[in-house]
Simulated scan of single mutants.
Amino acid sequence: MVKSMKLAPIFDPAVRKPAPKPIQVDLQKAFLAVTAAWVLALVVVTVLLALDMCGIRPLVVCVAGTVIGILMLTWEHFHRWDYRRLGR
């Protein structure tokens, strides 16, 4: 039976390419950027809500995104050493 080159790594693990090393990412910058975007969206939606141009649901979504972003920044602060050690 002839194996396709695309299926060869599935049948024979020895022909697999080595996995690339993970890149080190500064999670604080990533979480801060996303949280800032949610805060900006929250401000825009609040203004639109004050002008009666949108409903309450977008406001709830923006508040949830902001709260999750703050929680992720808190998590990053307490686990910074762990994930930086693993990224080396």
Results as ranks from 00 to 15, higher is better:
L71D: 06
L42P: 01
E76G: 02
L48I: 04
G69D: 02
R80T: 04
I70F: 06
C62G: 09
I68T: 13
W75I: 03
R84C: 02
Y83S: 03
I68R: 10
V43K: 06
V63S: 11
V43T: 11
A41W: 07
H79S: 13
I70Y: 05
L86D: 15
M53P: 03
V43D: 08
A41C: 10
R57L: 14
R88A: 10
L59H: 03
L49C: 08
R88L: 13
R88F: 09
W81P: 07
V43R: 10
M53C: 09
I56G: 07
H79A: 12
V63M: 13
I70M: 09
L48A: 07
T74D: 07
V47Q: 04
H79G: 06
V60A: 15
V61E: 10
A41D: 11
L48F: 09
C62A: 15
H77I: 02
V47W: 05
F78R: 11
L40T: 10
V47G: 04
L73Y: 00
R80N: 03
G87E: 15
V45D: 07
G69I: 00
I70K: 02
H79P: 03
V47K: 07
V45H: 07
T46A: 12
R80L: 04
I56C: 06
V61P: 06
D82I: 11
M72N: 05
L59A: 01
I68P: 04
G65I: 02
C54M: 10
R84Y: 13
L73C: 00
V44T: 11
L48D: 14
T74L: 09
M72K: 05
C62Q: 06
A64G: 08
V47D: 03
L86E: 15
T46Q: 08
P58N: 03
W75A: 06
D82F: 10
H79W: 12
G87W: 12
V63T: 11
V61T: 10
V39D: 13
H79K: 13
I68G: 07
V39R: 14
V45Q: 12
L40H: 14
M72T: 03
E76S: 05
T66H: 04
R84K: 12
W75P: 00
V44Y: 10
H77F: 08
G69V: 00
W75S: 01
V63E: 11
C54A: 11
G55V: 02
V43H: 04
R84S: 05
L71M: 07
V63W: 13
M72P: 00
T46G: 15
V63H: 06
V39Q: 15
R80G: 00
L49P: 01
L42H: 11
E76Q: 07
L73T: 00
E76V: 02
A41S: 14
R85T: 15
C62L: 04
L42R: 13
L59Q: 03
G55D: 06
V67L: 14
V47Y: 02
T46I: 11
F78W: 11
R80P: 00
T74Q: 08
L59V: 01
V67N: 01
I70Q: 04
V47F: 05
V63D: 05
M53T: 05
I68K: 13
G65Y: 02
G65R: 05
M53N: 12
L51F: 13
L40D: 15
V44M: 10
A41K: 14
A50W: 08
L51M: 15
G55P: 02
V47H: 01
G87Q: 15
E76C: 09
M53S: 08
R57A: 14
